[in-house]
């Protein structure tokens, strides 16, 4: 299990990366390496060129301008986990990060790497889906924004072109005091989730839900937003039985099945975890948790 031969490039600017992407045959971008390196060691990928992004300037940052949060593509998961901005403004991401891999992998893994790899069971894409994040990519013709809903185009395939680099993520914070919960079921701590649910809720002073986002991860090729449930949640009061009833819609998701979990089991988990995420988010929004 040793990497195959390749040429190594370590550009220092985004411009250089893009020109390398445009000129090299069969290149592969190396971010935190927590997914690419195992695939190289197992020779599941055989690139002719590895372009290392770790020396590229200006891709690691977490900024907050009045709730408009922007995150650099090479920002490490650990930096996000320990960020006060993320904890305060995007607590769903903090909740999710505690369930991402292990401390060693979070020390190296980056948000841009996770989003580009786009494992259907990964936590950060689900958070981006829940938050309607905007993915910023740069190519030879400059930057463009891709709404996260349009970002996954197929199984583990992002909408970036061959000569484009994911340089950042933009997330709009929800109202202060909003409810959030990232709930997943994995066989062991730190494993990729078999299924996950991410919930965001804003609750009015009367206790009624005024805004809702519910995302299910690990079931399809990409995280699934449960739009119908979200609409039905508006005006609800967090009654668990009512939430249970609404979440039954998750059984209709077109879910993957494999030797570890059947599609029925994933649909069932989606139903259960969605309810649990909503209950937890509602309790947080109303100060009960």
């Amino acid at each position: 299990m040793k990497p195959p031969p390749f040429s190594y490039h370590d550009p220092s600017s985004v411009g250089e990366v893009i020109s390398l992407l445009g000129s090299l045959e069969n290149p592969k971008l190396l971010a935190g390496g927590q997914s690419l390196m195992p695939m190289l060691n197992m020779r599941y990928v055989m690139p002719d060129h590895v372009i290392d992004l770790n020396k590229v300037d200006g891709l690691s940052y977490i900024n907050d301008e009045g709730g408009a949060i922007s995150i650099g593509g090479m920002t490490r998961q650990r930096d996000l986990e320990y960020s006060d901005v993320i904890k305060a403004k995007c607590p769903l991401m903090h909740d999710a990060l505690l369930q991402v891999g292990h401390r060693q992998t979070r020390n190296r893994g980056t948000i841009g790497g996770s989003l580009s790899h786009l494992d259907p069971a990964a936590e950060l894409p689900a958070v981006c889906a829940a938050h309607d994040a905007v993915i910023v990519v740069q190519g030879p013709n400059g930057e463009r924004d891709i709404p996260f809903a349009d970002f996954p185009v197929a199984y583990m395939t992002p909408a970036t072109e061959m000569d484009e680099l994911l340089i950042g993520v933009k997330i709009q914070a929800w109202a202060e005091g909003h409810g959030y919960a990232f709930v997943e079921f994995a066989r062991r701590h730190g494993d990729f989730a078999i299924t996950s649910a991410a919930a965001l809720l804003e609750v009015g002073s009367d206790g009624g839900i005024t805004r809702a986002s519910l995302t299910v991860g690990g079931v399809g090729a990409a995280p699934v937003r449960m739009n119908e449930i979200e609409q039905a949640l508006i005006g609800q009061f967090g009654d668990e039985e009512k939430l249970r009833e609404l979440c039954e819609a998750c059984r209709e998701i077109d879910a993957l099945g494999d030797v570890y979990a059947s599609s029925e089991y994933r649909q069932h988990l989606a139903t259960v975890l969605s309810r649990r995420a909503l209950v937890k988010a509602y309790d947080r929004a109303t100060g009960k948790a």
Binding site: P3, Y8, D10, G33, M37, D52, N107, R108
Partner: peptide
């Protein structure tokens, strides 16, 4: 430990 932070050395290239 890479600059004091734990990291898996099988998932890094020496050149990095």
């Amino acid at each position: 430990l890479l600059n004091g932070r734990s990291a898996r050395s099988c998932l890094m290239l020496a050149v990095q």
